[in-house]
């Protein structure tokens, strides 16, 4: 088991390196294609001389490799890696260090993810289990139909519809009925409020969780169905064990493996969804930071955040792999 863990961690670190290299290569190419490298970081803006200089220094744009499209620019890559190792992820257009901005934004994103996870657990696991248990009956069909419908609605559309069509009438109605500072009024607020972090996050979190839970639900259902008919379940029943015992120990436990692996895949989507959610609903989290930076063409921030989020994704996938090994002994001995 220990060797498995060590191997997975080393592999994870290697992947981190590869991912950073890939991002570097892509950004380098984009900069090279842009003609004037430094200007690539400013989009439509016209930068001041000092901003231009800061970017040139930070990214080592003085290096001639940036004038040659196709040159992988490994020198600047190593330089950037050492900066990352020191915790230096650059600054935004106004000179604020990215790490500071992230530290402020992180709690909000975490809060959002808590709500999303709870939504997945409740809706995804519960409904998936119910659908599996009553397979073929009306409730199974209606659950699956609902999951198809939910799936079809892109997060973006749901949020735009909610934010631009529903929030204003809902808030007005809530204010009129319950008062300006009441819970319902805050629930439906069109944008995030610092004083009521949890309340204003509930509905966006719910919506985001809803869109992601459909594949989760289907997976839970499929995994449990596979186990209902599995031979080891038949064996367990033949030993005279009660239904409750069989369900807990032999069905749920065995279906946990594919479900946990699913978390790894769904996480990447959830991250994208979070970016959209925070962006549209103006929640000051990491996703919003990214969203705003794209809109403002603050490219160095964009580069920094995408890098960090990719590393986070690798971390999550590593955790999933380790959980997988903990749950299924067959893998540990590879």
């Amino acid at each position: 088991m220990v060797s498995y863990v060590i191997r997975r961690v080393l592999l994870g670190l290697f992947t981190v390196l590869l991912v950073l290299l890939l991002l570097h290569l892509l950004t380098t190419l984009a900069i090279q294609l842009n003609g004037n490298p430094a200007l690539a970081f400013f989009g439509d803006h016209v930068p001041t001389a000092s901003q231009l200089h800061a970017v040139e220094v930070r990214y080592g744009l003085g290096d001639s490799c940036y004038q040659q499209p196709g040159n992988p620019c490994l020198g600047p890559f190593w330089h950037r890696l050492s900066e990352y190792a020191h915790g230096d992820f650059g600054t935004d257009l106004e000179g604020r260090p990215l790490t500071d901005l992230l530290a402020q934004a992180l709690p909000n994103t975490l809060r959002l993810f808590v709500i999303v996870t709870i939504t997945w657990l409740i809706i995804g696991m519960l409904l998936g289990s119910v659908a599996a248990r009553f397979r073929g009956r009306p409730i199974d069909h209606s659950i699956r139909l609902t999951s198809v419908l939910i799936d079809a609605f892109p997060v973006f559309v749901m949020l735009v519809v909610y934010r631009f069509i529903f929030t204003v009438p809902l808030t007005t109605w809530a204010r009129r009925t319950f008062g300006s500072d009441s819970i319902p009024a805050l629930l439906f607020k069109p944008s995030y409020s610092e004083e009521h972090p949890w309340l204003t996050l509930i509905i966006p979190g719910l919506l985001l969780g809803l869109t992601g839970c459909a594949p989760f639900l289907r997976l839970v259902r499929a995994a449990q169905l596979e186990n209902y008919n599995a031979e080891h379940v038949r064996t367990a029943r033949s030993k005279g064990l009660s239904n409750a015992h069989v369900t807990a120990y032999h069905i749920v436990r065995n279906s946990s493996v594919p479900v946990v692996t699913a978390v790894g895949f769904v996480f990447a989507d959830a991250l994208s969804g979070a970016v959209i959610t925070e962006g549209v609903m103006n929640i000051r989290g990491m996703g919003n930071l990214l969203w705003q930076s794209v809109q403002k063409s603050d490219v160095s921030v964009v580069v920094g955040i995408v890098t960090i989020l990719s590393v986070v994704t690798i971390g999550v996938m590593l955790l999933v792999d380790l959980a997988y090994a903990a749950l299924d002994p067959r893998i540990r001995l590879d």
Partner: peptide, 13 residues
């Protein structure tokens, strides 16, 4: 590892 949207945001910027 890199979510599609994030890559798109990065590169298209």
């Amino acid at each position: 590892v890199i979510p599609l949207l994030l890559a798109a945001l990065l590169l298209l910027s």
